[in-house]
Structures are given as C-alpha cells and as structure tokens.
Amino acid sequence: MFDFLQYNFIQNALAAAVLASIACGIIGVYVVVKKIVFISGGIAHASFGGVGLGYYLGINPMFGVLPFSLLSALVMGTVSKKSKIPEDSAIGILWSLGMALGIIFVYLTPGYAPDLMTYLFGNILTVPYSDLYFMLALDVVIVGAVYLLYKEFLTLCFDEEFTTVQGLPTEKLYLFLLCIIALTIVVLIKVVGIILVIALLTIPASLSRKFTYNLKRMMLISIAFGTVISVTGIGLSYALDVPSGATIILVLSLVYGVASFGMEILENIKNSGA
C-alpha cells in the first residue's frame, strides 16, 4: 500500500511538506493573532512580480521571488503605516501592482514559461532536491529569528503602543516580522502556490488556537496539524490524481470546518448539561 513512498519525487514532496509546515506553523500563529492576514496575502501575491523577474532574467524563479517578496514586505509595511490612504487600500494597490509586474515580465520573456502554473497553484510533487535545501535554509532563518525575538514579537503582537512605550523599535520590529512572513511565503510557494499560500498561513494556526491559549504551544500544534494534513493531502492527490496544492487546502478547510462545528456541538452539550 505504501509502495509509492519509494519514489524519489514522493520523498521530496513529503520532506517539502514538513519543511513548509514548520515555517507556516510558527509564522502563521503571528499572522493570525496579530490579524495581518490581508497584508500577508498582499505580500504573497505581489511576489509574483519576482517569479516574472526570474523568468525574464533567466534565473531560477525562486531567486527572483526571494528579494521581491522581501521588498514587497518592506514597501507594504511602510506604505500601509505611513501613507494617508487606508491600510487595506494601500495593500490592495501594491498587491495588484506586484502581480501586474509579474505578468509583464513573463510576457516580455521570449519563448514559453514552462512551469509558470506551479508558482501560481503549487505542485509539491515536482519539488526538486535543490529546492529542499533552499527551503531548509529559510526554515533555519525563520526558526532562529523567532527564537531570538520571541518576547519582542509577543509584545509587538499583543500591544504595539505599549511596545513603543517600553522603548523598543516597534516599527522596525513590525517590518522585520513582515520580512519573516515574506520568507515563509517563499517556502510555501512550491507547496500550494502564490494563490493559496494564505490558507497555509491561516488555517493551521486558527485550528491550533482552538486547543490552547499559549503561543508556543499554538506553534507546535499548528506544525503538527500542518504536517499531518499536508501529507494526507499529498496522498489523496496522488491517489485521486488531482492537483496537490488545492487538495491540501481542501483537506485543511474540511478539518477546520469539522473541528469548529464539532467543538460548538460539544460546547452546547456541556452547557445544556450544566
């Protein structure tokens, strides 16, 4: 039954799923508790500009995405805080600007952009071995940053104003958090693609929130959920021959829906019993 595990591409896919789950489990918690889902979605979509740039320059598009997503994080963070237009409008503008740049770059690239679709919708079954090292390196940076800045990020997410009153560089800290989110998005792109990245940043973290009130435990639980669910998704997509990224998201949504519904029923039973 598990004979498909012997294929190299399946092994790579599973390794990628674990690496992605670590990144999105930890960083997704910040995205959810700080309520910056929309700006994270903006950074993800704007990074498509980087994919286009990669094709245009003839390099591995992942190396285009990395600087581009960091740049979008910095620009979005600064513009949304500083400009006079409302934050969500600023994000909306930059979101589409990045995507438009990507489309123009791809158009200007002579010939045919071979696996453009995998960047938009992900295809974990085609992750090459070299990308795994890239993902691992980013994971190390992400985990290291959160380890060093755990108390700073906690304060920042809980009460930004008080963070400033305590003399911390709140604005720089926020921009740095957005950059870490950008790195996470780069890790996740191969798994589910730019369009679906936001699901991996929000669903495992929202799910873990139902089980604990401790931020560290939330991170561990969402890593566990992410890993189990994405592996299940890969298995299903292989068995049913449907796209892997979308399958992972469907399983995630299903689990989230069942968990929410189930917990509500439990709550009702408890309340009516008391």
Partner: peptide, 22 residues
C-alpha cells in the same frame, strides 16, 4: 489573545531587560 497574565506583566520589564535578551 493567547497570552497569560504572567506574560503580560513581564512585557512591562522590556525597557529594563533590553533588546534580544532573555
């Protein structure tokens, strides 16, 4: 927000503890 009373009160020490220190 997933934060305990103890963690909230400790954030009041940040100006003394300093950046990046435990």
């Amino acid at each position: 927000f997933p934060i305990s009373v103890w963690e909230v009160v400790l954030t009041g020490r940040m100006s003394h503890t300093g950046f990046l220190k435990k």
